[in-house]
Structure formats: C-alpha cells, structure tokens
Design a protein around this nucleic acid. Structure first.
Lengths: 206, 206
DNA sequence: GTTTAATTTAAACAAACGTTTAATTTTGTA
DNA sequence: TACAAAATTAAACGTTTGTTTAAATTAAAC
C-alpha cells in the first residue's frame, strides 16, 4: 500500500472526524473541506467512503506485537516487565485512541461492510503473547494460577478507554482543563493505576 | 414524565437501533418501521429525533445510587461488600449496556445538542458513594491507602465494556455462540474476574 | 513540443434524510 | 348521537447524502 501525501492528509482528517462524529456522522464533504481537497478526490483515491475507512484501518495497523515481544524478553523481573509492557501498551493505544474508538463503534455494526479480519488476527496474536508470558510467570511461581488470562486485556484497555470516553467527566472532576494535562494524566496517573491493578491481580491469592 | 405504551415501544426500538447502528446510522424511518408506527409519530410524540434520544436517556436513568447504598450498608466484611457491589453494578450496566453504548459514543460528540447534566450528576453521586466507602475501609485498615479512588470506576466499567465492545472476538475465542452463553459468561466469568481485580487492587500494598 | 496519463474541478445525479402538512380515522366525553 | 380531542396516515417539503460525470488543468513521458 503506497499512499501519497494527499491521500495521507485525507486519511488523517477522516480519522479525526470519524472519531469525533462517528462514521455516519461525518460527511465526505466535511472531510474534503477539512483536508482542503475536492469531494470527488475521495472517490477518486479510495473508491468510496467505506473503502476510505478500510484503508485507514490498514494504514494504522502497525505491528504492536514485535515491540511488545522485545519488552517482554528484557532482563527484568516479571513484575517489572508487566510495568514495562503496560507503559508501552498505554502509550500505543493512547496515540491510536481515535482509531480504536472508530473500531469499537463500527465493529458491532452489522450493516457495515468492513473487513475486521486483520484487526482480529492481530488481537489474537497479541493475546497469545501475553498468555505465554503469564503462564511462564505462573510456572515460575510469581503469578497467581487462578487469574483469568483472557480477561486481563479488557481490564487494561477497558480502564484506559472508559477513562477516555468519560474524559470530560474526569476533567471536570480533577480540574484538568486542557489537552496537555490530559496527556499528563494518562502517563502520570492512569498508567501507574493500571500497572498497580494488573500486578495486584496477578499476585492476588484467592 | 408519563409515557404511553406506543411511546415506550418506540423508545425501546430506538435504543436497540441506536446501540447497533449509532445515532446517525439510525433513520427515523427505520425506527418507525421496526416499531410498527408511522414516521410522523416520532415527531408527533417526541418533537424530533434528538429529543427522542433525550427522552430515552431520562427514561433509562433509574437510580443506581439508592440500591448501591443499601448494598454497601449491609452487615458484611468490606471485601464481601465489594463483591456484592460489583455483582450489582455489573448486573445493572449489563442490562443497560445499550444505553451506555449510546452515551459513550454521543457524549464526546460536540455537534450533538443533548443534555448530559443528569447523567453527569448521577455519575458524580455514584462516585462520592464509593469514595466514602473506600475511605472507610482505609481507615479500618482493610484497604490500601495508595489506591487511586477515582480510577476504580473506569476499571470496573471499562473491563465490562471493553469485553462487550469486543464481544465477537471473545465469543470466537471462547467458542460462545449465542446470547444465552454471553449472559452466562458475564455473570460466571467476567463478574468474578472484576471482583477479584478490585479486591486485589484494594488490598495491594506498594 | 507533442502526446498521453494523472489530477483536479464544478456540476449534476438519484436516493435518503428529518420534519411538516393536511386530511382522515379513532377515541373519549357529554 | 354529536362533538371535540387525540391519534394516525400518506404525501410532500427542502436538505443533505455518497457518488458519478465530463470538462479543465497539471504532470510525466517521449
């Protein structure tokens, strides 16, 4: 997939607007105007609005697994590697949060004709990686054997996204008033909270 | 707010379709057809599509706090009350999951003119209730003093919703193939996982 | 410099959108 | 039965939707 500058410009504007207003809430004319191109360019380059979203998904599907794998094989204690993995994971989903929001909302939409196979394959790959790591830790006697491994992911990602989806509520509650402090909060408060939660869960007996 | 049978019928169809296809992805004609009424009835009863959503929010905003309060004041250990609270909370959000999905996706939509004040007020009330309970537990020496109380909610709700939003993925992974087993999974696997996670977090030192 | 291909444009397309209208039917009241 | 109010209907309203067309412009190839 080779994309020229204009195509990338359109994709990034579309990502922003899809995340803000939803796929159906965003018109191709709105995308075109914001990206400063003619409406017809979207059909010309991508074929259709749905294919534009499909291209966007592929464009954003960079490989989480390879980097996560290198984090997990560093020479550190199991708990330190959990910390490192979660720090890396939150950084990743935070910078890709718009794409995730689009996926969350379109994934369960039956009327949409979008190919989620690549997304699901990557998700499964990522799961297998974590599963093996946790099982290693269990064999080493560091992690509890009663933890429900498939549900670790929803707890990590879910905590982040529930925070993100209720951003205004938390901003009001904490008095955060701009984007910088939202970013700061994610790294300085939310990430440690998730790290602590997962470490607690993985070492909790009965 | 007094609603007749036909109005309730429209509201429940709308809730289902909004959750499935989004607010913008659902047409008033689709709602009317599914609810077996004429399109004009929606304007006639609710004024507009947006006001229909507003009415739906009020219709679903039943009081979580009162029931949660009675759970938290039962004569049980702190950890057992955590279990009871989470079991109750998951039951509630599971049965209201469609409404929550709509709210999550419309809440961050700036172009929408919907009143979220009631929703936010309730959210704050619920938070205050939990905050007081956790602080009591900390004073009693049962709960860790380093836990970030405002982030307990995102972990509970987020775990549920990330599971729900990736339902098909988990169904494929666990071989769940119908709605009954999805319900079963929520109560028999997901709820215990969240209970364990929060108890672990609340008793985790350092 | 000429020709061919790629890009960009404004305009038009039919379909679908939320909403309103005005007429008709049903219901409730006296 | 007669009347008024409420409910229901099909049709029409003006916009907006995604997409296509055909002409104009720019870029690349020879």
């Amino acid at each position: 997939m080779d994309l020229n500058d204009k195509q990338i410009q359109i994709l990034e504007v579309a990502e922003k607007l899809f995340a803000e207003n939803g796929f159906d809430g965003t018109s191709v004319r709105h995308i075109a105007k914001e990206a400063d191109v003619n409406v017809a360019m979207i059909s010309y380059y991508f074929g259709s609005k749905e294919k534009l979203l499909g291209t966007l998904m592929i464009y954003r599907a960079s490989n989480f697994r390879i980097q996560a794998e290198s984090v997990l094989t560093e020479e550190m204690s199991y708990l330190d590697r959990i910390d490192a993995l979660i720090e890396f994971a939150i950084k990743r989903i935070h910078s890709n949060r718009r794409m995730y929001k689009i996926i969350h909302f379109e994934y369960s939409n039956v009327s949409r004709q979008i190919d989620f196979d690549n997304y699901l394959d990557q998700k499964l790959e990522n799961y297998k990686l974590i599963e093996n790591f946790v099982k290693d830790g269990q064999r080493a006697g560091v992690f509890s054997k009663t933890v429900d491994i498939p549900l670790i992911f929803p707890t990590i990602l879910g905590t982040y996204f529930n925070f993100y989806y209720n951003k205004s509520f938390f901003q009001r509650m904490h008095g955060l008033d701009n984007i910088t402090s939202f970013d700061d909060f994610v790294y300085k408060k939310l990430t440690p909270h998730i790290q602590k939660t997962i470490k607690a869960l993985l070492t909790y007996e009965i």
